[in-house]
Design a protein around this nucleic acid. Structure first.
Lengths: 205, 205
DNA sequence: TTTGGAATTTAACAGTGTTCAATTACTTTT
DNA sequence: AAAAGTAATTGAACACTGTTAAATTCCAAA
């Protein structure tokens, strides 16, 4: 059945072309300005075709946000080399923030925009496995810290959430333009200054 | 000049009617689904009229986000009664989070959505005075804490940003549906559990 | 060569923000 | 009171948006 194999391959190829075009346009012009017609234009197909490969715009951007998580996961591979749990936790924060600052639109899609989450709720199995996997990694690292005597008197789950929130808070305020209120020469550097303060705090716990 | 006075009053009244209708629709159906035509319908005027009172949709929602800051400021009035700076800081966090959880759409508009910030950048004097005022209050409170010996070894501005980021991070993850990853019976309660962990940390600093 | 089915397109629907010429309403002047 | 002038308001149009569904094209199988 070589023919149907090729057909399936071609179908997959077109799916990838759609996603590729969507990604380029998204990184170039943002979510709102990346329209179905724009994407279709770029791959020289008619707009209607996209709906034979994706349920709706949300599904396209959910697929794209998966790319982002893959990218983030790749960056986090270096953490395997960091033995000390607290050092690993700090390195995780640095990588997380570096990713966010270097890929603000992708971070926005992954952790701020409603599109991918809306798609998850529209589909049958409604758990956010991409975010779940990343959070599990953070939780495990914090657990390892606790096993070594850090964070005494704290609860694993709420503390993990708090630590995630801290780094997410900084980058999302930055990405969504709320850092103008900061008095300082280095307005762009405020996230890194904040992270340093955070490290100082972690050392005290 | 009684007539032009009345005219001006009427103009102001229509402006308020527009804002009122916009607010009702926004809290009812959200930002995207609140259209210029919807607002015009509700006050029984034609859509075009809105553009004689506001430059664009962003300006309408910037005005609305000002309402939100007024509301938040009102809630923060009780802080004047809290003498101890660290207690005041904690109470501030509680109020901030209570406001966000009770008014998620308004919080979203104030601290996450791009509309009000975009309008600020479009207008000539481009500083976010609403956010600035609130942040100043936070900074002053943290300064007062430091004057009493807390937070030794920390820098005022980055630490203030970090603390803001922590509470913002928690509520924005909650509002934007990223808390599904939390393992726990009380998924809604995670923000409060996180806040408790945060208080525990503040006490150690 | 005809048939069957999948892939793709075309056209339409119902909406969006925004602009601007035309019209209405109303105050001021004659 | 009638005419003029000005401000307020409308209506229509423009260029888009996501989405659906019927019509059409394409191509392998019979």
């Amino acid at each position: 059945m070589g023919i149907s194999d090729r057909k399936e391959r071609e179908k997959e190829e077109l799916r990838e072309k759609i996603l590729g075009a969507a990604k380029v346009l998204f990184l170039e012009k943002g979510f709102e300005k990346t329209s179905i017609r724009n994407i279709a234009d770029r791959i020289e197909y008619s707009p209607g075709i996209l709906y034979h490969y994706f349920r709706d715009k949300n599904e396209i951007f959910h697929a794209l946000h998966q790319d982002g998580f893959q990218q983030l996961l790749n960056m986090m591979q270096v953490l395997n080399a960091v033995r000390d749990p607290l050092e690993r936790l700090k390195a995780m924060g640095s990588i997380y923030i570096t990713f966010a600052i270097q890929n603000p639109d992708m971070y926005d899609l992954m952790f701020i925009k409603e599109a991918p989450i809306n798609h998850i709720h529209d589909s049958e199995h409604d758990d956010w496995k991409e975010g779940g996997g990343t959070f599990n990694y953070l939780r495990d690292t914090i657990q390892a810290c606790m096993n070594e005597g850090h964070f005494e008197g704290h609860q694993l789950e709420p503390l993990s959430f708090l630590i995630w929130s801290t780094v997410h808070g900084m980058v999302s305020l930055q990405i969504r333009g709320r850092c103008e209120v900061i008095k300082e020469e280095n307005k762009e550097g405020i996230v890194n200054s904040g992270l340093e303060e955070f490290y100082r705090i972690l050392d005290k716990l």
